[in-house]
Every structure is written in structure tokens, then in C-alpha cells.
């Protein structure tokens, strides 16, 4: 049973048959359980060690970041790096990221939810081809897309505004979300919807009152991903942002090697600040993430 993205309605939940197996050879099983558990924990270690290094670097002064052997725990606990990030200007970049992400979340909901429902339920002609086209937009490399897009926004004079970044991020995420939303709506039992319609609800009300609440776990998980993707986006923002509309990822890109002096401590502090919301979202999505993401592709 993969993750349940849609609440069960009048179905038996298919739990794993447990119990019997457990009784046999319990001791041996326990030992091997412990070993595999340890192995799993070890496998997760490489994911988290570099992040701990990032955190430690955030508290180092410049010299501490540049010496060999490296300083592991910076006892000096230099907060200078963080205070140098909390300037109105750099917080302005942060605000831009917040605005872009919030707008993308709203737009994706407004555009993708009804469309996904329509594709799943409303006899749209060539629905399958449409779905393929929609998801294929998500497959395009952003840097190849942004060249044409730059030309277009430049023609209509929207370059350098947040609008252009929001539009592109919405396009990438709406295509991904529509595809997943429609797999969720397909799982909502049709009888439930038909019953609602017999009670006099229109299509739109059925969507809002029945289908969305039933698919809400799945929808929230996808929106969690949309948040992460929009928050992390760089290629569009790098090219399309203007002087006043830099997002935080563009600011992070200024710590590149063509910079004359990279203060790794400050860079790490900025990174730590910026990934904190992402880690919070990940923690909130833990149950869905840990249950495995099959994106509806499991039979």
C-alpha cells in the first residue's frame, strides 16, 4: 500500500498482514532488524553530514573557513555572519522570494485544481494528449526555456519585474501539479460525486465540497513540493529579475567563483537562513514523504 493521497470512502483499508510472521524466529529476526535499521541510518548519514558542515561554517570567521586542518566546531561562535545577512537590503531579497512563492502557490491552486478536475472528470476530448502536453512542459530544461521567454517579456516590457518570474515558475509548477491532481481526482469514487450531484450540487460545488476535501492530503503534499520548487528556483530568477526584484537565490549566486573574495561563513549563514523554511516544510510533510512518493505511478 503506497501512500494514501485520497481519503478512503467506504473502502476497507488494506493493511499489511502482520502478526504471524513475527512469532517465528523472533530473536533472529530482531537481530537482523537491528542490523538493517543501523544500515538504513548509515545510508541517511551522507545526506545530513554536509548540512551539518554548512551549519558549522555559518558560525566561522573568514580565517576559520580557510585554514587546514579545518575547524570542526567553531567555538568562537561568530554571529557576525548572521548579522551581516540581516540588512534591509538582503531581507528585501528574502521578501521577494516570499512574494514569488506565495503568488505561485495561489496561481497553481487557481489554475491547476479546476483543470485537473476537468481532465479527470469532464469528458474532455483528447484528455490524455492534453495531459502529456501539460506534463511535457515540466520536462523542459529551464535554461533552454528562458532564452525565448526573455525575448517575449522583453518585447512586452515585463522583464525585471516579479511578474515574469512568477509566470514562469507558475508554468513549471502548474503543469506538474495538474498532472498529479488529476490522478488524485480519479481516485475519488465516482459514486460519491454522483450522490452529491443528485443532492443538487453543481460541478464546481462538487469539486469544492466533495473532491477537494477528499483529496486534500494529496493536494497538500503536492503544494508542499510546489512551495519547495518555487522557493528554490534560480535560472528564471537569475535572468528575469531586475535591480529591485532579485530573489534570494539570485543573491546566493553572487557567492560564485568570479567573486573577488568569498566569505564562506557569510555564504553558509545565508544558505542556512534560506533553507530553514524548506526544512520546516519537509518536517511537516514527513508522513507523506516517508511513505514513499509514487506520484500515482504504482499499480
Amino acid at each position: 500500500m503506497a501512500v494514501t493521497f485520497v481519503e478512503e470512502v467506504g473502502r476497507s483499508s488494506g493493511k499489511h498482514p502482520r502478526g504471524g510472521r513475527r512469532l517465528r524466529a523472533r530473536g533472529r529476526r530482531r537481530l537482523s532488524d537491528a542490523m538493517f535499521w543501523l544500515l538504513a541510518a548509515l545510508l541517511a548519514l551522507p545526506s545530513v553530514l554536509p548540512l551539518l558542515w554548512l551549519l558549522s561554517t555559518a558560525f566561522k570567521n573568514y580565517i576559520e573557513t580557510q585554514v587546514v586542518p579545518p575547524v570542526v566546531v567553531p567555538f568562537s561562535l561568530d554571529l557576525e555572519n548572521f548579522s551581516s545577512i540581516f540588512t534591509p537590503q538582503i531581507m528585501g531579497y528574502f521578501t521577494n522570494s516570499v512574494i514569488v512563492t506565495a503568488c505561485v502557490l495561489v496561481l497553481v491552486l487557481v489554475l491547476a485544481l479546476p483543470a485537473a478536475y476537468g481532465l479527470a472528470r469532464l469528458n474532455v476530448r483528447k484528455a490524455k494528449d492534453l495531459q502529456f502536453w501539460i506534463i511535457s512542459l515540466r520536462m523542459l530544461p529551464p535554461m533552454a526555456v528562458v532564452v525565448p521567454v526573455y525575448m517575449m517579456f522583453s518585447f512586452i516590457g515585463l522583464n525585471g519585474s516579479l511578474v515574469s518570474i512568477i509566470c514562469m515558475s507558475t508554468m513549471m509548477n502548474a503543469s506538474f501539479a495538474t498532472w498529479l491532481f488529476s490522478t488524485f481526482f480519479e481516485q475519488v469514487p465516482e459514486e460519491t460525486e454522483e450522490a452529491a450531484q443528485l443532492d443538487g450540487l453543481g460541478r464546481f460545488q462538487t469539486l469544492v465540497r466533495i473532491s477537494i476535501p477528499l483529496a486534500r492530503t494529496g493536494i497538500l503534499t503536492v503544494m508542499g513540493f510546489v512551495f519547495v520548487f518555487a522557493w528554490n528556483e534560480l535560472p528564471f530568477a537569475l535572468v528575469l529579475s531586475g535591480q529591485l526584484t532579485q530573489t534570494f537565490t539570485v543573491f546566493l549566486s553572487t557567492f560564485t567563483s568570479t567573486n573577488a573574495l568569498i566569505n564562506y561563513g557569510q555564504m553558509a549563514a545565508a544558505c542556512v537562513l534560506y533553507i530553514t523554511p524548506v526544512i520546516v516544510v519537509t518536517a511537516l510533510m514527513q508522513r507523506q514523504l516517508a511513505a514513499g512518493l509514487s506520484f500515482g505511478a504504482v499499480k
Binding site: 554548512l54 522557493w231 528554490n232 546566493l252 533553507i275 524548506v278 518536517a283
Partner: peptide
């Protein structure tokens, strides 16, 4: 463990 293991996926490529 699985959530911690998945963390890199959630990070910005630039970070």
C-alpha cells in the same frame, strides 16, 4: 530516517 535521507532533494541547487 527516510525523511532525513530525502533532505537533499528539497534544497535549492544553488545551495
Amino acid at each position: 530516517i527516510r525523511t532525513v535521507y530525502l533532505l537533499p532533494v528539497m534544497l535549492p541547487e544553488i545551495v
